[in-house]
């Protein structure tokens, strides 16, 4: 997958919007915890929790200027909702994490 090999950094589309700087920084700061929570949910086979986490990211990421992250979260949401097996879900969370890793303040 090309996306996961792409190492270019991602910055928020709103990085230069003074109104947004604070909550974008908070969003980036909290992102590792959100991903960790997803991994915990997968390990616990708690699909409702995983879906909620993915769904929230899907709805919000674009608003913080990270549409790619939102699209990747939508794929996780979709996989959980469709009842895909854990390998598919894990791989999609992996893609989401790869995009998150490229995000810089």
């Amino acid at each position: 997958m090309r996306l996961s090999n792409d190492q270019t950094t991602l910055r928020s589309e709103f990085a230069d919007d003074p109104d947004m700087v604070g909550i974008v920084a908070l969003f980036i700061h909290e992102l590792p915890q959100r991903l960790a929570a997803m991994h915990v949910a997968i390990a616990a086979a708690d699909h409702d929790q995983l879906r909620m986490l993915a769904h929230q990211l899907k709805g919000a990421a674009g608003g913080y200027g990270f549409p790619k992250l939102g699209e990747a979260a939508a794929l996780v949401d979709q996989a959980v909702r469709a009842g895909n097996d854990d390998n598919v879900i894990r791989s999609r969370v992996g893609m989401l994490a790869a995009i998150a890793a490229r995000i810089r303040p």
């Binding site: 908070l26 969003f27 709805g59």
Partner: peptide, 10 residues
């Protein structure tokens, strides 16, 4: 989602 509330506040 608290993320949405923060966004709306701003």
């Amino acid at each position: 989602s608290v993320l949405i509330h923060r966004l709306l506040q701003v």
